[in-house]
């Protein structure tokens, strides 16, 4: 029974061309921007309008529906063969991140022997992975790698599981890495700095039910 173009608080803004008439003078665009800003600074006129509150709730529902939509689609996608991963991984060759060349000693004047920085970082990671309850992240070699005997500092980022002793794990990591480096390289290690950057709250249970020695 409402004449056309007359505000009608009982019908919905989204069925009308006259948003301000349904939203106490506001547009849905305004409300959307308000929401995007986290409702700051507070707008009393919006906050006290029942129509606006209902519209804000709709916008939030849409936003939450949207954020789960893509994930749902990803989850629903056929579990296809692994070829797409293989195709990507085959292209990524392992020496693509070799970094600097670190010289190794040899008496012959013709010899140019090196171990790459990338190989050393891989060695550090592999060593770190043997330490239980710890995951190695970044590893950096600081110092003049090109000069034999120059002091090198190894900086390692790692994450651990909650409840583990940080100093004890860090020390274990240091010792394991030091042993690996001295076994494989001729680097003069001045220090191994370990930074614990994250503590995981949930424990990782290896699928194969055996502990790392």
């Amino acid at each position: 029974m409402t004449p056309p173009n007359m505000p009608d608080a009982t019908s919905d803004w989204y069925l009308s061309d006259n948003e301000p008439g349904h939203l106490d003078g506001h547009t849905i665009e305004e409300l959307n921007d308000y929401l995007d800003r986290g409702r700051v600074p507070a707008n009393l006129s919006i906050d006290t309008s029942p129509a606006c509150q209902i519209a804000l709730a709709s916008l939030e529902r849409l936003s939450s529906a949207m954020s789960s939509l893509l994930q749902d689609e990803a989850d629903r996608a056929d579990v296809r063969d692994d070829s797409w991963v293989t195709a990507i991984m085959d292209g990524i060759v392992r020496d693509a991140r070799s970094g600097r060349d670190i010289p190794l000693e040899h008496p012959s004047p013709h010899a140019r022997l090196f171990v790459t920085e990338g190989a050393v970082r891989g060695l550090v990671r592999a060593a770190g992975d043997t330490v239980a309850n710890l995951i190695v992240g970044r590893c950096r070699l600081d110092g003049d790698l090109a000069t034999p005997g120059a002091p090198i500092t190894i900086a390692i980022n790692a994450s651990i599981y909650r409840g583990e002793s940080i100093p004890a794990l860090a020390e274990q990591l240091r010792q394991t890495v030091a042993a690996a480096l001295s076994a494989h390289t001729e680097l003069t290690i001045a220090a191994i700095d370990v930074t614990i950057q994250n503590i995981y709250l949930t424990r990782h249970d290896p699928e194969i039910g055996q502990d790392t020695p």
Binding site: R94, Q197, N198
Partner: peptide
């Protein structure tokens, strides 16, 4: 299995290092 449990930051750092 260990890496699957790691956060993105750790994975990115290792990737940057060539893992």
């Amino acid at each position: 299995a260990l890496l699957e449990h790691a956060d993105d930051r750790t994975l990115v750092e290792r990737t940057v290092d060539g893992d």
